[in-house]
């Protein structure tokens, strides 16, 4: 059984529409209105603040980079590596991010902590951590993949333009030096070092099972 059919009325064109002239005059009226609004604002210096009032009527140009708007928390900018309390990277060199990365632009060289370090056996650390930001497609998969909240893209920073290609390749130091939009190098999520109360105490040699 056929369903209900709704007949859409075709828009008709009146003679006035078809003569084109009236519509041209109307269009000119609209653009002239905006022209005088914009010119008036420019001349009187009454240009609305594009940072605080982005939806205001009239000129809404943001003079980037002198003026910037705050980005939402979810906005994906250049990466940073978060810090532990002692300033070392939270990253445990699990390679989840580099595996997830569709652009294959993360290179991590993992290393074992030295004998006697209480983290040895529990986790590794990145000897080298390199992201080629030029290859990166800013998908955020690396952030989603990380089990340790060690990599984040909440810096609120665009990829800057450099003269040399190698400048786009961010190494560990550079990534560690980036701060979040709020200026912190840490993450809000708690982290338990081996030996802390709350640390599961499971390592690669003595599994829980």
């Amino acid at each position: 059984m056929p369903g209900k059919t709704k007949v859409l009325k075709k828009p008709t064109r009146t003679l006035a529409d078809q003569s084109y002239l009236i519509e041209v005059v109307k269009g000119l009226g609209t653009t002239l209105k905006h022209f005088f609004q914009g010119t008036g604002q420019m001349v009187s210096g009454n240009v609305p603040n594009a940072v605080t009032d982005p939806l205001a009527e009239g000129i809404s140009t943001l003079s980037y980079p002198e003026e910037k708007r705050a980005y939402s928390e979810r906005w994906r900018g250049v990466h940073r590596l978060t810090h532990r309390d002692d300033g070392s990277p939270r990253c445990v060199a699990c390679l989840c991010c580099s595996t997830a990365c569709p652009a294959q632009c993360i290179y991590i060289k993992p290393g074992e902590y030295p004998e006697g370090d209480k983290r040895r056996g529990y986790e590794r650390y990145p000897v080298e951590f390199v992201i080629d930001e030029l290859r990166c497609i800013f998908c955020g998969f690396c952030v989603e993949a990380c089990p340790c909240d060690a990599i984040r893209m909440d810096t609120g920073t665009h990829m800057t333009a450099f003269d040399v290609k190698s400048d786009f390749v961010y190494d560990k130091d550079k990534l560690m030096s980036m701060v979040s939009q709020h200026g912190t190098q840490k993450s809000e999520n708690p982290r338990h070092e081996p030996g802390d109360p709350g640390h599961p105490g499971i390592d690669r040699l003595h599994g829980g099972h």
């Binding site: 653009t31 905006h34 022209f35 609004q37 914009g38 010119t39 420019m42 240009v47 009239g58 000129i59 809404s60 140009t61 003079s63």
Partner: peptide, 9 residues
């Protein structure tokens, strides 16, 4: 002129 019309600087 086009900038003013299009609410640009």
């Amino acid at each position: 002129q086009s900038a003013m019309m299009q609410s640009r600087i």
